[in-house]
C-alpha cells in the first residue's frame, strides 16, 4: 500500500481530516454534541489535538504540558497581577501608592541573611522625630532556589506580643505625626529614644525568625 493511501484512510486521530464521510470518533463529532451526565461548568478550553504536520506534534505536547500550570502572583510594572501563563486574570493596581518624605522624615534600608532557626532584630534606626514610629515598612524575603512553596515562610514578632508570618513580601503602612506616638508601627524597642536605656521588645520593634533549615535573605525598607 502506498504511503498516500495510508494517510487518506488510517488517520491516527480516529478520523480523517482529508476526506469527508470517513470514520467518526465514537461519542462525538462535529455533527452532534457530547452531553455528559451531571452538571458542567462554564469553561473554555483552547487546545490543539490534531496534528497534520510533524512539527504540530510539538504544539500538542506543549499544550498539555502547560495545561496545569498554576496561577501566580507577579508584580508587573505598578500592580500585583494574578496571571496564568500569558493571561492576566486579575490585578490590584498600586500605581497611586505614594509615601511622602516630610520635613521630619527619615528612611533606612537593611539587608540581613537569617541563618536557619535563628532570629534577627530589625534595627530601630533613628526615627526619633516620630517617637520610633514608621509609616512604611516593606520587606522582601529571598529564599534559596528550589525552596518548596510551603517552606517559604518566616515569622515576624511585633512588640513582643503578636507573632505573624510572611512569605516573600510584606508591606505595612500607617500614619505618623511629628513628636508624638500616632498610628504607625513602632520599630524602637528602647525605653529611651536616645537608646541609652535597656531594650525591651514590649516597647516596640520587629523580630524576624527563620524557622526553616535554609538561610533566607531579607531586605527591609522603613520610613517615617
Amino acid at each position: 500500500m502506498a504511503d498516500s493511501e495510508i494517510l487518506n484512510t488510517d488517520n491516527f486521530d480516529g478520523g480523517s481530516s482529508l476526506q469527508t464521510g470517513e470514520t467518526l470518533v465514537v461519542g462525538g463529532s462535529a455533527g452532534f454534541a457530547i452531553t455528559p451526565s451531571g452538571s458542567t461548568a462554564g469553561f473554555k478550553i483552547e487546545y490543539l489535538n490534531i496534528a497534520r504536520q510533524l512539527d504540530e506534534l510539538e504544539i500538542i505536547e506543549a499544550t498539555f504540558q502547560r495545561f496545569n500550570d498554576p496561577n501566580e502572583i507577579e508584580f508587573i510594572k505598578e500592580s500585583f497581577d494574578v496571571v496564568h501563563q500569558s493571561k492576566t486574570l486579575d490585578t490590584l493596581n498600586v500605581v497611586d501608592f505614594f509615601h511622602p518624605l516630610q520635613s521630619f522624615s527619615n528612611y533606612q534600608k537593611q539587608t540581613f541573611v537569617i541563618l536557619p532557626r535563628t532570629s534577627a532584630n530589625l534595627d530601630p534606626s533613628s526615627f526619633t522625630s516620630t517617637n520610633g514610629e514608621v509609616s512604611m515598612l516593606i520587606a522582601r524575603a529571598n529564599y534559596l532556589p528550589g525552596t518548596p512553596r510551603e517552606e517559604k515562610v518566616i515569622f515576624w514578632d511585633y512588640k513582643g506580643s503578636q507573632r505573624n508570618i510572611m512569605g516573600e513580601v510584606m508591606i505595612l503602612t500607617g500614619a505618623i505625626k511629628e513628636d508624638i506616638p500616632w498610628k504607625g508601627w513602632d520599630v524602637d524597642p528602647f525605653s529611651t529614644y536616645g537608646h541609652t536605656g535597656p531594650a525591651n521588645s514590649a516597647n516596640g520593634g520587629f523580630i524576624f525568625t527563620n524557622p526553616t533549615d535554609s538561610e533566607v535573605q531579607l531586605t527591609v525598607i522603613t520610613a517615617n
Partner: peptide, 21 residues
C-alpha cells in the same frame, strides 16, 4: 486579626503559607 489591632495607611500586603508552630 486574632485579637491584635494594628494600623494601615494606603497599602498592606501580607503573605505566607500556613505553618505549624
Amino acid at each position: 486579626y486574632q485579637g491584635n489591632t494594628n494600623y494601615m495607611g494606603e497599602l498592606m500586603v501580607l503573605s505566607g503559607q500556613r505553618i505549624s508552630s
